[in-house]
């Protein structure tokens, strides 16, 4: 057999298997479907009394969070533990980088401890790519959120949630509401929905919170909530990032809720069986009212549960992709 040329995408092995998971963008549809199918079987493991399978026994997973996170870090940790991997949580604020050690020196030290996987969150867009380009070939890198760029495991757990409740992507209209400008989640969701064949992806928000040229990602743009929600099957509210409020993009939180906050009345234009999602953490009374967040259409907490299974699937695929690439 003639060996195929090395893949141009650093996320993939020469034979097209996943070895890093950095961005949804540019991945083929069958690979995304493989992640969703894999996750479906891991959901059952979470229902067992002993929530553990030995797939990654003896592997070491390092959580490298340069930016604060509770939900993402803990669900990655749970996912790794349910696969029987050993997990190391590096508290960057207290680590040697604050004593002047460079990022590469820190990574080489972690590699010297025979780590098999780095889960990276960083406030700089592209940081996980930089790390993936510089790690030794046996180490897989998973992006747990980088700057405004991407949050691929969050997008895939959202895709899992949509497929779980809607059974398909064809024919679905999905609306993403709020601070799209600062949202790496929204960007990854848009790519994933388009790759998986959703009928229409809409973004809804004030012009100041929508990136210029967002249409080029394959979305329709609405500044009016009622028009944007008409006949949608899935409603995704984004967190209004309070830390962005001082940058004068919005008059006030109250003003945002008045125009774009989700309550039962505002949801009326959506399809009667529309589901409401949110990547968390939610700001009650800012982008979503409690009557919606806790209401019958909300699947927000199911997203968290599915997130563990999706991360288990991605981690398993990346580890086996690394081994097969040797």
């Amino acid at each position: 057999m003639i060996p195929s040329p090395p893949s141009a995408n650093i996320q993939l092995t020469a034979d097209g298997r996943l070895k890093h998971f950095l961005s949804v963008e540019g991945l083929p549809r069958p690979l995304l479907e493989e992640i969703l199918d894999g996750a479906a079987s891991f959901v059952e493991v979470g229902d067992r009394s002993i929530k553990k399978v030995p797939l990654l026994r003896g592997k070491t997973v390092v959580n490298l969070f340069f930016e604060a996170s509770t939900r993402t870090r803990s669900t990655f940790e749970l996912a790794a533990k349910r696969l029987s991997a050993d997990v190391l949580n590096i508290d960057i604020a207290k680590s040697a980088t604050s004593k002047g050690e460079t990022l590469m020196d820190m990574l080489w030290n972690l590699e010297a401890m025979a780590s098999d996987m780095f889960i990276v969150r960083h406030s700089d867009s592209g940081a996980p790519f930089f790390i993936a380009n510089h790690v030794t070939p046996q180490v897989a890198v998973i992006n747990a959120g980088d700057g405004r760029h991407a949050h691929p495991t969050q997008a895939m757990l959202d895709m899992y949630t949509i497929r779980h409740y809607k059974g398909r992507f064809a024919g679905l209209k999905v609306a993403i509401i709020g601070d799209v400008l600062h949202s790496r989640v929204a960007r990854s969701q848009i790519h994933a929905l388009n790759i998986l064949g959703a009928e229409e992806v809409r973004v809804i928000g004030p012009k100041t919170l929508l990136p210029k040229d967002i249409e080029s990602l394959g979305v329709s743009v609405y500044t009016d909530l009622a028009a944007g929600l008409r006949d949608v099957d899935v409603v995704i509210a984004l967190r209004l990032q309070k830390e962005r409020m001082d940058s004068a993009l919005l008059p006030s939180e109250g003003e945002f809720f008045r125009l774009y906050g989700l309550n039962n009345d505002r949801l009326r234009p959506a399809k009667p069986d529309a589901i409401v999602m949110h990547p968390g953490p939610i700001n009650r009374g800012v982008e979503i009212a409690s009557e919606v967040a806790d209401g019958p259409r909300s699947v927000i907490l199911h997203q968290v549960t599915f997130g563990i299974a999706v991360r288990m699937a991605v981690m398993s695929m990346c580890i086996s992709g690394q081994e097969s690439g040797l």
Binding site: R17, V43, L55, S316, M317, S320, S324
Partner: peptide, 12 residues
């Protein structure tokens, strides 16, 4: 598993 990868069609 580490040689062959995850079976694409795992059933619960």
């Amino acid at each position: 598993f580490t040689h062959r990868g995850l079976h694409p069609n795992v059933k619960p």
